[in-house]
């Protein structure tokens, strides 16, 4: 017997993307403000107050909800900006605010008690004691889990917390525990925690050399491509490096997480929401991925025992996947 139907939580980096998500069946759309207060702080992306207000209105009129991600860790110098963003979220009437910083969680819990608080994946809560902590101290109603737990671990955790659990279902795969990775700032000075970016575009250089096309991040060689190879964005953990004289993807291949086939299991263990990664992606991506996942979730709930992943869904998702490869990531233990 399946519990309450899991929500489909889709990304939007613009009003057009938000509308695409709503139109194609998202239950919730998560957005961020146009500054360093969220973990997808890319040029030309995200919302100002006017577009956020229109987004909330549009979603509401279609029966969908907007969640606001405010999930970087502000320094004292950025504290007021972050608090203003929390206040603005409350004023906009978003359905929940997604936070990671303990100071900000306290601020939101005190000033805007009735606004739902979700613990961001950047909060790095990977066990039920940690989630209970955030629940007891700051009244979170939902926690987004880092992409490091196996399915059994998710199930065990779910059974031991008094809050909803949201997991990543599809998109670029962070191989590191979110909120515990400073690789990007080590190389570029900016990380998800501090600036809301990983491997920022301003630090990327492409150069054609006699050895092949090279991608560098602030001068550090991330990868080199032969003429017949597809060059990918130089996210620094997805480059090829040398270990013991062997050159390979020493940390992670450029693949996408795709958990479609786990849907019945995720539903059975009581996961409340499934998150699609990609606020930096195009409205077309959002539309395509939302449509497939809406269809898959509805199919799964109609008849969980008979659920099979349809070839057409995979074909659609493959078109937009990073590296055109899929993995179940940590949900599938052997991946580790």
């Amino acid at each position: 017997m399946l519990q309450k139907k899991m929500e489909l939580v889709c990304p939007a980096g613009s009003l057009v993307a938000l509308k695409a998500a709503v139109d194609h069946g998202a239950d919730c759309v998560y957005i961020g403000f146009r500054d360093g207060t969220n973990a997808r702080n890319f040029g030309g992306l995200n919302f100002d107050l006017a577009s956020a207000r229109e987004g909330v209105r549009y979603a509401r009129s279609a029966g969908a909800r907007v969640l606001l991600a405010l999930n970087t860790y502000p320094r004292d110098g950025g504290w007021q900006t972050a608090c203003n963003a929390v206040d603005a979220a409350a004023d906009l009437g978003v359905s929940a605010i997604i936070l990671a910083d303990v100071g900000l969680l306290e601020y939101a819990a005190t000033r805007h008690e009735t606004m739902r608080r979700h613990l961001s994946v950047q909060g790095s809560a990977t066990n039920y004691e940690a989630i209970r902590f955030y629940h007891e101290q700051y009244g979170i109603s939902r926690a987004v889990l880092p992409r490091v737990l196996s399915l059994e671990q998710v199930a065990h955790l779910r059974a031991n917390v008094p809050v909803e659990i949201e997991v990543f279902g599809f998109g670029s795969l962070c191989v590191m525990v979110e909120g515990r990775c400073a690789l990007s700032s080590y190389v570029t000075g900016e990380s998800p925690n501090t600036a809301g970016v990983c491997s920022p575009a301003r630090a990327v250089r492409w150069e054609k050399t006699p050895l092949g096309m090279e991608s560098r991040l602030n001068g550090v060689l991330i990868d080199r491509y032969a003429d017949d190879e597809n060059a990918g964005y130089p996210t620094l953990c997805k480059g090829r490096f040398k270990v013991d004289d062997e050159t390979y993807y020493a940390i992670e291949e450029p693949t996408s997480l795709n958990t479609l086939e786990l849907l019945p299991e995720l539903a059975r263990i009581g996961v409340s929401a499934i998150k699609i990664e990609g606020r930096q992606r195009s409205p077309a991506y959002v539309a395509q991925v939302t449509r497939v996942w809406r269809n898959a979730i509805d199919t799964c709930y109609r008849a969980p025992q008979q659920f099979v992943v349809q070839g057409a869904w995979m074909a659609e998702l493959n078109k937009v996947a990073e590296g055109q490869q899929h993995t179940l990531g940590a949900y599938h233990r052997p991946w580790k």
């Binding site: 502000p74 004292d76 306290e106 790095s124 990977t126 066990n127 902590f133 501090t194």
Partner: peptide, 30 residues
Amino acid sequence: EMGAVRLMSGTEGFVAGTHLNVYNSQTLKQ
């Protein structure tokens, strides 16, 4: 990590480790 913080809170005292992500005064106050 915060699971350990939960278990240690209210005891005689603990050290908040480097991975607790203290980036501002308000978090440290908490």
